[in-house]
Design a binder for these strands. Structure first.
Lengths: 216, 216, 216, 216
DNA sequence: CATGAATGAGTATTCATTCAT
DNA sequence: CATGAATGAATACTCATTCAT
């Protein structure tokens, strides 16, 4: 369940001969896109922020859109990575006997990830409605990897009697919506008001648990 | 609880001497903004779509941003209107004795509203993270009107024993997140896959009810 | 056989609401393109030369290429116009009984036209090899109008015994090549050396006459 | 009268330590310039086509313009070479007693040369109007070598009574214009229509012969 | 009230060229 | 000798906005 390494390194992992300037471009783009939005950010702005010439951006990324996709594809993978990873089984089999323990572990893990990569997550959420290709990447990853895996997991807990017997996909959707919904409300819609993160996360977990608990 | 009138009329209600062209501009702007996003939409595009001259837009709306705000402010009011309305009391006192009945009524009502005004809602969600002033309008409306009102309502049901005893704001947030989270997931993030709306909405209601039910 | 009116007016004839700025843009574009070539001329250069903002060019002409075509299409028509015109028949029937008289009239007329519109002709010759669509316009006009007409004329003179009995198209091609070839050599390839225009034109006419004369 | 060797080798003859890459650059530049024109061709395009790094071009040719001149100077020499060569005298003295035989030999020879080097010829014709220095090279070569030589030849045939008594330069110009005019019409202006090369060349020769024949 | 010509700053992207490796 | 990262000026074109008609 390790995505402790910097996502910046992960983004650049696929490319070879990564230069210092390239890192700066990526960092600047993430900052700028998340602050002003993709469309409202100019490449000259990114260049200035990164301390490189504007042409340098286009040496590494054919278009502005290409730069966006090169940022977000790894984000998508990372976002769903832990669900997919082999060692996630341990979580299931060994320690997390109860659904509560499991949920708590997942929420903690993903919340930390989001908090560490809030800018990239914000960009992803903002841009996904406007880019068909981005949605396709997203759906591909989720459809092929995540739902299959989560179905197994939910079935496991349903059988154990920890979870209500509704279609797994709906259960997953309700849980995910609650978790990410909190993040969206907190960081995108109402970032200006005070939030007691710890308490709200705990309440969200309780809410999901109760919402998915089998009727006694 | 009536917002049956067209929101287009509502948007134009404040302005005087509303011309036919003005209506077309508003309609065109809503369509364009929701499809491509505010920043990625040009005023000339809106003009073309509306069938008016470029200058005409600026006769009615000082800037492009002004046009956005003129669209979204009424949307914000409308979005929270039913909660605020006087006749909402009747809902409370008379028919909706149980929290379930209340929730069902509210969800049904707001879902219909969102479905009718999905484009505007999409714009609101998309743009709110980038416009401080928009957020301020939003917070003002919510803070001053909605939460006070909802606190009363939640207290009412808490006292009745229908709802868990957690801070009303959190309860409200969890419910709202579930409802709007569904809408965002369905229309913004994953519009391409098939959704069984009726079933998902019912499950969402059950989920909220169970999530907020007092521990027996 | 009149194309005495300014070609600038002719170029702008098709467009409505022609503004002063538009005329200046056309004039500047002709000058710039003929001096430096289409590809080597920047739109900012044209704007400066025309004394307008760069955006103004694109209000009237969607692209730089569009501007080129809007210049050259009328040039193509004008270039072949006299051959096509009704009153050209008079030339044939009445005054120009001999091929020599006819040739002399045509050469004089087209030479004057080229001298008056040398810049546009230069642009046409320079750009035609690089633009398929331009060649299509050219071929269409020539194929449909010119060759049919000239075939009739040449047949007329062949029958009279003024002209050698070879395929009319070849005869026409040889004559045209001689005339335009002179212009190209004189203005495009070797503009720097001295030319005795009058003498060379006379020799060219004699050359064509002798070259096309029937073998006695 | 031999220019049988590849012109590519001739272009590179002057330079020392010619590498494989250099040959590829030259070949790529010829192809690209002739297809899109000098100004519209980018150095990166040439580099890609040649399979070399962008910098490599500039190692061998200081500027893009330098590359153009390095291509065209040999073309100019080659174009006029046979006229200048010593062994051309044999042509004159021995076999080609009549002007017709001489003309036929020259036309055949130059046509073959043009057909083999059509790309370079196209570039030369296209670029000469825009580059003073190129024109100077051209004029220098022609003035110093060609016209002197051709004057002698024409005088020879004039004296023999094969050729009309007009200024040699004009006669030469008329002949050259006819030959190259054919090539320009055929390859640059109207490459899209069908041409019966053999027949047209024969007619062109006949046309020149008749056009320059002394009046009986 | 509506138009659309005009603008100049700004857009993403390409350019020829340099230079450290 | 060859590379390709880096540049900054230039490119064609778009933008939101103004204003005379």
């Amino acid at each position: 369940m390790s995505d402790q390494e910097n996502i910046l390194d992960f983004i650049l992992k696929d490319e070879d001969n990564v230069t210092e300037k390239q890192k700066k471009i990526i960092a600047a783009a993430i900052e700028a896109f998340s602050e002003k939005g993709f469309a409202a950010t100019s490449t000259s702005e990114i260049a200035k922020k990164a301390g490189v010439a504007e042409g340098t951006i286009f040496r590494h990324y054919k278009t502005k859109k290409d730069l966006l996709l090169k940022l977000l594809s790894p984000m998508v993978s990372k976002l769903i990575a832990p669900i997919v990873l082999k060692d996630f089984n341990k979580v299931l089999d060994a320690e997390h006997h109860s659904f509560e323990e499991f949920l708590r572990a997942v929420v903690k893990n993903r919340m930390e990830f989001l908090q560490k990569n809030d800018a990239l997550f914000k960009i992803l959420i903002q841009e996904i409605p406007f880019h068909q290709d981005l949605r396709e990447i997203f759906i591909d990853q989720i459809a092929s990897k995540v739902f299959k895996r989560l179905n197994e997991i939910m079935d496991f807990y349903k059988e154990k009697g920890d979870v209500l017997d509704i279609p797994s996909m709906s259960a997953v959707r309700l849980a995910i919506t609650s978790i990410f919904g909190y993040f969206i409300a907190r960081h995108l819609i109402l970032p200006d008001i005070h939030w007691d993160d710890e308490a709200e996360i705990e309440r969200t977990i309780q809410f999901i648990l109760a919402g998915l608990a089998p009727k006694s």
